[in-house]
Design a protein around this nucleic acid. Structure first.
Lengths: 95, 95
DNA sequence: ATATTTTGGTTTATAATATAAACTACTTTA
DNA sequence: TAAAGTAGTTTATATTATAAACCAAAATAT
């Protein structure tokens, strides 16, 4: 009847992150923080989880003298997102 | 950017329950259990939460000599579901 | 008749999760 | 050079989901 929803994507913040990354292809920590309206701590944790799952890649560098964290969605992440959306559609198909 | 997702509906099992109830208008505990592939304990807890939120109403009676729990979605539940779906669409809109 | 299993659940304990608070390290500004 | 700001990370806490354990009655087997 219903397919399982990938628990890694079935989280408001992680889904928001993925949604953004899919449309922009690369985003800075501060950009994601602002767009998702999240705290830095929460964002940091959720980015790590997405990264650990291989859904995004995280690159740490410097912009001038300040640390810069740049995130990119991976192929695997795009695939997982698409599958999540398809699974979700079974749930939200309205009569 | 992203609207909040109603945490009561942003749960695989509760979303499945609501999805079913919206399409059938009334369903028995055992029907929901089978369709959602959930354990009785988990289903019982989640039905209570939806009921406490006013999203569904639960009627307890007997079918012959056996207990019968019948669930119906409320107007408020339908509204919440629709709002959830609309909010969700912001997240899953693909490029 | 009575022991065993099944049905239809509820309650409770546990494991996982999300989230914010507290912290670090460095930089800019006063 | 002290205070405030930036860009994060780590850790503690509160919430949540979930299953395990339980209960009462009914059906079935012995």
């Amino acid at each position: 009847m219903f397919s399982d929803l990938d628990p890694l994507l079935h989280s408001q913040l992680r889904l928001g992150i993925m949604s953004l990354l899919i449309s922009v292809e690369s985003a800075e920590f501060t950009f994601l923080k602002e767009k998702t309206n999240s705290t830095a701590g929460n964002l940091s944790v959720q980015l790590d989880k997405l990264s650990a799952a291989g859904y995004i890649s995280i690159e740490k560098s410097f912009k001038g003298k300040k640390p810069l964290t740049t995130c990119t969605v991976t192929k695997q992440g795009i695939k997982a997102f698409e599958e999540y959306v398809n699974a979700l559609k079974q749930y939200i198909k309205q009569p």
